[in-house]
């Protein structure tokens, strides 16, 4: 059974994003920017192409890291589909009754239907550890537009492809027949199903914006200057500098083997406190083993670089890395994708 078509699963150029987890305040502005732009239709109600999860935490969908997919040593790994209840979200509320039905003084606003048991941000700020050394941080997650996309590989219909001009992973919805092999294969579980239209959907990296030199909404709308966007091969750009030169930006779960293109500056975290509440500078509050479990062993070198460079500025010296991470000039975070979308007449 020879395939009649060549898979379009590689691209010479690749866009990428870097999230600084030391700067992310978990405000979900990225999630909402995406939501209002792309997933405000029926059956996309439960879809959050960008979510910010609290770590340690079970993520979204719940316990996605145990659902398989991706590759180990280049070998495809079995994956499973998340159940709708593992996504949660998209709940219905009794708005009509309370807001328009004359029961505003006698009925509480409440959800309708099955008791919610999970949602996109269900375990927010729970984290781990014990007072006074409790810890958590935020992890924005979206489609990784992987260099080796398991979703593209899994589709028997070649409905999915990587665009050669920028490596964005897209789906031809006219070819998609809703088999969801892509969702099974994605180890990050960032593929959603549209139950009404019978097609899978995921983050499209705001490609219509990117084509007009406008950064994706999640990146541009970040009020914390925590996101950089650009071509990975733009050697002078901040994305390449952080990923390739300084090596302080790392993909989530590199062991999944898909070569993710969303990168994270790992959280340095505050110092631990001794029982007498004096600082314990020797032991990181966020256990290194935990960060290694998320970002792989390279997280140690990344954190060492970050602390070394931070110490430089603390001592009044200059650090180009710190200048980049501080992001004095907001637009520099996206160049050349820094065009104002309000200037554009969108079709």
């Amino acid at each position: 059974m020879a395939k009649t078509k060549q898979k379009k699963d590689t691209a010479p150029r690749q866009v990428a994003m870097v999230f600084d987890l030391n700067k992310c305040i978990g405000c979900q502005t990225c999630s909402v920017a995406c939501k209002t732009l792309w997933t405000n239709e029926d059956s996309t109600d439960y879809q959050w192409w960008c979510t910010v999860n609290t770590q340690p935490g079970r993520g979204h969908p719940r316990d996605y890291e145990a659902m398989g997919g991706g590759y180990r040593d280049g070998v495809p790994q079995p994956g499973r589909l998340p159940a709708r209840r593992e996504w949660g979200g998209g709940w219905d509320f009794n708005y009509d009754e309370v807001l328009y039905g004359g029961k505003g003084n006698s009925t509480f606003l409440q959800h309708v239907g099955d008791e919610p048991e999970w949602g996109p941000n269900w375990d927010e700020d729970q984290g781990a550890g014990e007072y006074p050394n409790a810890y958590y941080f935020y992890l924005p997650r979206l489609c990784n537009h992987c260099t080796k996309p398991a979703c593209v590989d899994a589709c028997p219909r070649d409905a999915m492809y990587k665009r050669s001009e920028d490596g964005i992973v897209l789906r031809d919805e006219t070819r998609c027949r809703g088999y969801q092999f892509c969702a099974e294969a994605c180890p990050y579980k960032k593929v959603y199903f549209n139950f009404l239209r019978n097609v899978s959907q995921q983050c499209i990296m705001c490609f219509p914006r990117v084509e007009q030199n406008v950064a994706p909404a999640c990146a541009r709308q970040c009020p914390g200057r925590a996101v950089w966007f650009g071509m990975l091969d733009d050697a002078e750009g901040p994305v390449s500098q952080l990923v390739n030169k300084w090596k302080v930006a790392l993909p989530l779960h590199p062991e999944y083997g898909t070569d993710a293109n969303i990168f994270y500056i790992p959280p340095v975290g505050p110092a631990r406190l001794h029982e007498d509440h004096s600082f314990d500078e020797e032991t990181p509050r966020i256990p290194r083993e935990y960060l290694e479990s998320l970002f792989g062993p390279k997280v140690n070198a990344a954190l060492d670089t970050l602390t070394t460079e931070m110490a430089k500025t603390k001592n009044g010296r200059k650090s180009k890395l710190m200048d980049t991470l501080i992001a004095y000039w907001w637009k520099d975070m996206f160049k050349p994708y820094d065009r104002d979308p309000a200037e554009i007449k969108w079709k």
Partner: peptide, 13 residues
């Protein structure tokens, strides 16, 4: 073995 994707073969093994 004739399913056209390694992921489908792995998931259904």
């Amino acid at each position: 073995h004739k399913q056209p994707s390694g992921h489908v073969r792995a998931a259904w093994a």
